[in-house]
Simulated scan of single mutants.
Amino acid sequence: MLGTDLTQLKEYFGSSNEFIKSLTQNYTSDSASGGNALLEGETHLLASCEYEISTKWGQEVGFLYDSVVEDYLTGFILHCNGWTSVFCEPSRPQFLGSATTNLNDVLIQGTRWYSGLFENGINKYCSLIYGPSRMPVLQRLCFAELTYFPLYCFPLWCFATIPQLCLLHGIPLYPKVGDPFFIIFVFIFVSALLNHLEEVLITGGTLHKWMNEQRIWMMKSITCHLYGCLDALLKKVGIREANFLPTNKVADDEQTQLYQMDKYDFRASSIFIAPMLAVITINICCFLGGVYRAVFVGSWDKMFVQFFIAGFIITVNYPIIEGLVIRKDKGRISKLLAMCVIIATMILLGCFTLLSCV
């Protein structure tokens, strides 16, 4: 605990006497609005970029600067130091913020977040090795779940491709309809969807919002999660330096109009759009190929689950198809990019088919 020595306090909190005085005062809303706030000159001093130099800001005071997800790292260290959290949800909103409203900024922001989270899972602050003597096992596992959440990209990429490729080649992966184990797979899948739907509905959401969250979850999993993991690994081995790119939260009139119309603005980086197009192309081609095989060979019952998975992914990601085929506004998917990705994906599918026949 810090004492009352002014020199020590300035080493921690900086040179502002008014700010240090405020640390011991019990401010209320009346005093804050009645003229007891910091003087204007002190406010400019506190807001300057040089104020924190030679202080403990970012190390022991305020948010920690060792990560691009400073909120996670600060909370983790506070819990390691013995602090506890209290859930506070007042009826009156306490903060006013702005969020990204177009796809490109959402995915850029997500990549930065997931890179920072995974980076904390592979550095000295890994909750599995840093926190054993500082917090309970269950709490450490909760923090670990956050840091390793970006690894979700790998099972989802498998979910979006392997059953479909096996469907194309007539390889059943799941129990056929009528098999006792078929009910187990149906129960797990449906219960997961219903659990998410319940969470959306009890928080005031709608069925439409639930579908949007499913869609964004898929988009982020094959883009942000993957790129975040790669970015963290590259920084870990020294190939890439850490950086912080703020996302734009100011939308122009056209972006605002698309947002209000519930339309995705696909004027995003090609590294985000390409994986989405590749996945939807694989699912459509394999679904149609599976239908052809089932019509002439049979085995609908053996392939039903794989048909359903491909159909589910196509249905949820209908806005991608709409942005490619139907929409004519500026927010549609680039035709040139789409043609390149679709042709490359179909060539790879053809090569995979030839190799499987050898």
Results as ranks from 00 to 15, higher is better:
P275G: 07
A268S: 15
K335S: 09
C351A: 12
Y148F: 15
G41D: 11
D179E: 10
V297P: 01
K209R: 14
L173C: 09
T7W: 11
I271Q: 15
P155Q: 08
F185P: 01
M135T: 09
V61G: 04
W210N: 10
V200C: 03
G170P: 04
C229W: 03
G82P: 02
F181P: 00
K335Y: 06
L73Y: 01
I284T: 08
V291I: 15
L146C: 13
E213C: 02
P180R: 05
E241P: 01
L207R: 11
Y51M: 07
L201Q: 00
V69F: 02
L288Y: 05
V61Y: 07
I273W: 01
L138K: 06
L355A: 12
S115M: 14
Q25D: 13
A37H: 09
G331W: 03
G75Y: 05
V297L: 08
A144I: 00
Q260R: 12
R134T: 10
T203Y: 09
G110W: 05
A192N: 10
I129R: 11
F312A: 11
F149C: 02
G97S: 13
L78G: 04
G131Y: 05
S48Q: 06
M218Y: 14
G350T: 09
A47T: 03
K10Y: 03
F143G: 00
E322P: 00
I314S: 06
W157T: 07
S67G: 01
M346K: 13
A192F: 11
F87Q: 12
I343R: 02
F307D: 02
G323Y: 00
F13E: 03
T256P: 04
S67L: 05
V295F: 13
T206W: 07
T161F: 03
V237H: 04
C153D: 09
T84A: 14
L277T: 03
V358F: 15
I326Y: 08
I343E: 03
P90Y: 04
T7A: 15
N36G: 09
G121D: 07
L128H: 04
L103G: 01
A278T: 09
L146R: 12
L233D: 10
D231A: 07
L64V: 06
P180D: 05
T353W: 14
T315G: 08
C153A: 14
L103M: 12
S115C: 13
L107D: 00
S48G: 10
P93A: 08
S33M: 13
K21Y: 10
Y148E: 11
K10G: 00
N104D: 13
I162S: 01
Y152M: 11
N248K: 04
K302M: 14
T74S: 09
V358I: 14
H169E: 13
G350W: 07
I171W: 04
R215G: 06
L193D: 08
Q94E: 15
C357I: 15
Y12V: 07
T24G: 15
D231T: 15
A344F: 03
S269T: 10
F287L: 15
L337A: 05
V86G: 04
G62L: 08
V61M: 08
D71G: 05
S356E: 08
F189W: 05
L9W: 06
S269V: 05
D252T: 00
